[in-house]
């Protein structure tokens, strides 16, 4: 699997198998519904994954980016009658604008403060969405038309879940590709350096704030694109998009498998949503399960389930710089002296 061509072929086979997965699982409408939801929500989670794994911050505002994409799609198609393509452009632009404002605001905050400010921002967004009539107020916006992405003579429409699957799957593949390319790009490497060793990054001539802002913008676009598709799938947007449930789903999806594993958020989201679809315990039971899974993972194996798999860990150490963070390993091995506490 080391040869690039072999790797490409493996990825290709995996992609084709993934596409055929609903049929392999019987092709019932429940299977299609579940897989479409998995594709959309894991695409949404990748937005957060980029921030969490590569920038090392926890953003609690990504539900707002997801909602921005969905609201932009709803307003542009329902209120103004634009096409789905225009709506996509609008969703991306709206998310970029919101992310730019938030990014500039949060630029100087780190870790703890960053999470608190992003949480506060999410509350403001939710409050505005539920009161501003332009955004549908507390009723939301209903009657979003079926997805229609036809170009020229090629008809590309989707009404039911089975027809929706190719689009959701394509969005997922595209997201995976973007995240994969990002991690190998100059920006991705720079982001990691800013995260792991800010002083070294500064000495290499990197502008930490600028890189953080760029990554923030990228992650907002990823989540917003997922929100855009979700609006068409559900034909309705409302303030429930800001629900903590989505936030917890995203965070659990990213953390469940482990950070900086390309397929991690997909697997995590798939596990959570499969439970919800095929082994549901009712709305309250599912909430309980989601909460218990998140608490369990973080309290028992904070590095994710993949860290329980010894072979995988050995591979991850050579592959991913995330696990060789000198600060973390040092902390784990030698307790830092008392006088250094508080500086870290």
């Amino acid at each position: 699997m080391t040869h690039p061509l072999a790797r490409l072929a493996f990825a290709g086979v995996l992609a084709v198998l993934g596409f055929l997965l609903p049929r392999l699982l019987g092709g019932s409408s429940l299977v299609y519904d579940t897989l479409v939801a998995i594709a959309i929500f894991s695409a949404m989670s990748y937005g957060l994954d980029v921030i969490l794994s590569d920038l090392g911050e926890i953003s609690l505002v990504h539900t707002a980016f997801f909602a921005t994409g969905a609201y932009a799609a709803a307003i542009l198609t329902v209120t103004y009658g634009f096409s789905a393509w225009t709506a996509l452009a609008g969703a991306v632009l709206a998310a970029l604008a919101l992310a730019l404002v938030l990014g500039v605001i949060t630029l100087r905050t780190r870790e703890f403060a960053f999470s608190l400010v992003t949480y506060a921002a999410a509350v403001v967004c939710m409050n505005v969405a539920s009161n501003w009539d332009f955004l549908g107020g507390s009723d939301g916006i209903v009657g979003i038309p079926p997805l229609d992405l036809s170009i020229g003579g090629i008809e590309l429409t989707a009404g039911r879940s089975a027809e929706f699957w190719p689009f959701a799957y394509l969005l997922l593949l595209l997201t995976l590709y973007v995240v994969h390319r990002f991690r190998r790009s100059r920006l991705g490497q720079a982001a990691l350096m800013v995260h792991m060793n800010p002083r070294l990054a500064t000495m290499c001539g990197l502008d930490g704030n600028r890189i953080r802002l760029q990554v923030f913008l990228l992650s907002a676009v990823i989540s917003a694109a997922a929100g855009w598709l979700y609006a068409f799938q559900r034909a309705y947007v409302g303030t429930d998009l800001f629900d903590t449930y989505f936030l917890v789903l995203m965070l659990t999806g990213v953390i469940l498998a482990g950070r900086r594993i390309l397929l991690g958020p997909l697997l995590g989201t798939a596990l959570l949503l499969s439970q919800k679809s095929f082994a549901s315990l009712g709305a309250y039971g599912d909430k309980l399960v989601l909460g218990v899974v998140l608490v369990g993972v973080l309290c028992l194996c904070p590095k994710g389930l993949a860290s329980l798999w010894p072979r995988r860990r050995a591979a991850a150490v050579t592959d991913a710089p995330a696990n060789t963070n000198p600060a973390n390993t040092n902390k784990a091995r030698f307790p830092s002296p008392v006088w250094e506490r508080g500086q870290g």
């Binding site: 903590t244 936030l247 917890v248 659990t252 309980l288 989601l290 909460g291 608490v295």
Partner: peptide, 9 residues
């Protein structure tokens, strides 16, 4: 956050 979800459920 997870603890809160579990309590609510």
């Amino acid at each position: 956050l997870g603890f809160g979800q579990a309590l609510e459920g």
